[in-house]
């Protein structure tokens, strides 16, 4: 598994975060799919009353090469990012090698009210934004009191 964050913060805020994570680790129970954080692409998830918004931070990829699938309430984002490392025979030295390359796959379990017919995906500035609509019935309604 990945133990290093894709986007670490600077040292002081890293120490701050470490302190918080140690406090939280007492109630740590990992997901069945491994650590929830740290893989590629990095992910943000948000909710609105009408939709679930998923942001996958996958820069420098041809959007045609990203595979997004929604099956049985599980959203899968998969693809491959080519390595930019020089070939062995090139007379070059690699000083820092931190960027992800190779095949990737990340999975998000959606809530039960996600509508498989209401999915849209956009790729802009290296971020894949998947928006999944919620089913009408599940949306909050104001109930009037007679």
């Amino acid at each position: 598994m990945f133990y290093r964050s894709v986007f670490p913060r600077d040292l002081l805020s890293e120490l701050d975060r470490l302190q918080r994570e140690m406090q939280q680790s007492y109630e740590f129970s990992p997901s069945i799919r491994g650590l929830a954080r740290g893989g590629f692409p990095a992910m943000n998830v948000g909710n609105t009353p009408h939709s679930v918004e998923i942001y996958a931070f996958a820069p420098g990829i041809d959007p045609a090469a990203i595979d997004v699938q929604l099956e049985k309430g599980v959203l899968t984002i998969a693809g491959e990012r080519a390595s930019l490392m020089p070939p062995k025979e090139a007379n070059a030295t690699v000083h820092i090698d931190e960027r992800f390359s190779g095949r990737f796959r990340r999975v998000v379990t959606l809530s039960d009210d996600a509508d498989p017919n209401g999915v849209s995906a956009k790729y802009r500035d290296g971020v894949l934004h998947v928006s999944v609509q919620r089913r009408q019935a599940a949306q909050p309604r104001r109930i009037s009191i007679e």
């Binding site: 600077d10 692409p41 820069p59 090698d97 971020v127």
Partner: peptide, 30 residues
């Protein structure tokens, strides 16, 4: 530190060849 000053560290690759240095950085969402 003020929130406006904190930042994430983008991952980079740095490769040197005879003519110079090539740096790749990931800044998704920018």
């Amino acid at each position: 530190a003020p929130a406006s000053d904190m930042a994430l560290l983008p991952p980079v690759d740095v490769i040197e060849d005879a003519g110079g240095i090539t740096l790749y950085a990931d800044l998704p969402g920018v």
